[in-house]
């Protein structure tokens, strides 16, 4: 199509409008992404780096701390995300029942953790699970053993899983609640008249109808858990003996705690990128429309 003078002017004006945003996105997103990809092939400490080819990738497989962090992260992911998604679904279905009294109150209570400050709630969890903390006392009250929550690798992982579940369940629940409220009530009335039992209504009607939202929240939660940092940093600092160390924390340590190893840290970052890409693809594939 022939460009008219007016068309060119309009184009120029259009570009002028989007330029500031594009420049900022380019500067703070695209440039760092490309730069970190370049960095991930650099070896060396501090500012003193040289091109190392695939050296960093080889280093990954021989790095016991990286493998521990990767293992921990995948354990958090495999246990916490399914539990949280199920819990959020159950809460959402329960809160969607019009006959439930105090729905607004429960909804707020369950959602509230998602808007509390990360540090504040981390400190709270730290104190609840300290040696004289509430959790320890409750277990003792029911005659349970004395558990050193934050000193034992297993229990430290449990505390982290509890903490992120507490914080993010309500957040996911809101998505399901919104989706449920968009479902025509008469679908459930039809099911009731048709004699479909409550269990089957949940598994054969509700879950399939929420599938797109479940897929979305699963991917969001997967990405969130793969980037898990704040909770472990504030509650356990990755301890005891790296039992709760996550990939993000390891990246942080590589960059700011030890003698900076920017190149290797960038490589670990790209491990997260690859994991997100692979897991998202798998999830899309599992949730695909089979017809």
């Amino acid at each position: 199509m022939a460009q008219t003078r007016l068309g060119r002017n309009e184009n120029a004006a259009g570009w002028a409008f989007v330029m500031p945003a594009l420049a900022l996105i380019g500067l703070f997103m695209i440039y760092p992404i490309l730069w970190s990809l370049w960095m991930s092939f650099q070896t060396g400490r501090g500012m003193n780096t040289t091109f190392g080819g695939f050296g960093n990738i080889q280093r990954l497989f021989a790095d016991p701390i990286f493998l521990t962090a990767l293992g921990n992260t995948l354990i958090f992911l495999a246990i916490q995300v399914p539990i949280m998604i199920m819990l959020a679904l159950v809460f959402a279905v329960m809160l969607n029942n019009p006959r439930l009294k105090g729905r607004g109150l429960f909804r707020t209570a369950i959602f509230l953790p998602a808007v509390t400050s990360l540090v504040a709630y981390s400190i709270l969890f730290k104190s609840i699970f300290s040696n004289e903390g509430l959790a320890t006392q409750v277990v003792a009250f029911f005659g349970g053993p004395q558990i050193a929550w934050l000193a034992e690798p297993f229990w430290a992982k449990v505390v982290i899983i509890l903490a992120i579940t507490w914080r993010w369940t309500g957040y996911n629940m809101i998505f399901y609640l919104a989706a449920l409220q968009n479902i025509d009530r008469s679908i459930y009335e039809a099911a009731r008249i048709d004699g479909v039992p409550a269990r089957a209504q949940f598994f054969r009607i509700t879950i399939p109808m929420l599938k797109p939202v479940i897929l979305f929240t699963t991917i969001i939660s997967t990405i969130g858990t793969l980037q898990l940092f704040d909770e472990v940093q504030n509650i356990t600092q990755g301890g005891p003996s790296n039992a709760t160390l996550t990939l993000s924390q390891y990246i942080y340590n590589l960059t700011f705690r030890f003698m900076p190893s920017f190149g290797y840290a960038a490589t670990v970052s790209y491990v997260i990128v690859v994991l997100v890409a692979v897991l998202s693809t798998v999830q899309f594939w599992v949730a695909r429309d089979r017809r």
């Binding site: 679908i187 048709d194 004699g195 479909v196 089957a200 109808m209 017809r291």
Partner: peptide, 24 residues
């Protein structure tokens, strides 16, 4: 009952929509 909004199960095909209740 037949509803104004039809109340069909959106994720099922016509055959499953009609046969769903009979299963139960």
């Amino acid at each position: 009952m037949v509803f104004q909004t039809y109340a069909l199960y959106p994720h099922m095909n016509v055959r499953d929509n009609m046969g769903f209740s009979l299963k139960y």
